[in-house]
């Protein structure tokens, strides 16, 4: 440290924006998400773990069901959604867990930022990791099970389900971040809440693969969209209220 440069430092006025509003909120959401992604690009400890787990799970399921089911499309919907849920848990608990382990969460909380902005920043980075997972898993499933999941309504349902999963998962990850048993608590809390998403996602995927008309499957898409909307709004309000307890 140098005394001369210190004098110059303290003599300069510092201006902070205090306008608030949605633009300021979004700037902070973006800052948190960008920071998480940048740190992940260096550390490779969240997305890469999820992807490797997901790919291994596809191979293991492929070997387990090989020659034992008459049609692979009978098991593919369940396998896809189980992999997304289980691989997702691995990453979700690190989103706040890493901040707690390194005590950087305190640094975030010292800043003049709404807890919901931190939440949505984490949600954005978790969503990105989950989509990356699916980007790797779907082609491998195509090869392993000879089942094409790259169909518009399957991808739409998967995207809606992933959004809902990231919303709820990020929320519970924040809630359990300070718990010593967060690795086990997160799935115990999270997976029961995800039952509607799991059921809707599996039913929609199975219906499309079975060649049923889309008009009969729209209700599953509606369930996923309603789930996403409810948790998006609820998280926005609840996170700020309960943050002291986190």
């Amino acid at each position: 440290m140098s005394s001369d440069s210190l004098r110059g430092l303290l003599g300069r006025p510092v201006t902070m924006r205090t306008d608030g509003g949605s633009a300021a909120f979004m700037r902070k959401v973006w800052a948190v998400a960008a920071k998480d992604v940048r740190a992940e690009l260096r550390a490779k400890e969240v997305a890469s773990t999820m992807i490797v787990f997901g790919l291994l799970a596809v191979v293991i399921f492929g070997l387990a069901f090989d020659l034992r089911v008459p049609k692979s499309s009978m098991v593919v919907p369940g396998i896809l959604w189980v992999i997304v849920l289980f691989a997702g848990v691995l990453g979700l608990h690190r989103s706040f867990g890493a901040e707690v382990d390194r005590d950087t969460l305190a640094g975030l909380l010292l800043a003049p930022v709404e807890p919901s902005a931190i939440y949505f920043g984490k949600l954005a980075s978790n969503l990105l990791y989950l989509f990356l997972l699916e980007l790797f898993v779907l082609p491998v499933m195509l090869v392993m099970f000879d089942t094409n999941l790259f169909q518009f309504h399957i991808l739409l349902g998967l995207s809606l389900g992933t959004l809902g999963y990231a919303e709820v998962g990020t929320f519970f990850a924040a809630l359990t971040a300070n718990s010593r048993a967060r690795e086990s608590m997160l799935p115990v809390l999270l997976l029961p809440v995800m039952v509607p998403v799991f059921m809707a996602g599996v039913s929609l995927t199975a219906g499309i693969l079975d060649g049923r008309p889309v008009s009969g499957l729209v209700s599953w898409l509606v369930i996923l969209a309603v789930f996403d909307t409810i948790f998006f709004v609820a998280a926005y309000w609840i996170v700020d209220l309960i943050w002291d307890g986190i």
Partner: peptide, 27 residues
Amino acid sequence: SHRPLVYDNLNGLENLRFFARMYDLVE
């Protein structure tokens, strides 16, 4: 604090840029 409250996977510049955004620093 006792703990540095900075991100060890980011560099020094990235850390301060991040906190500058969180504090809404102008320029």
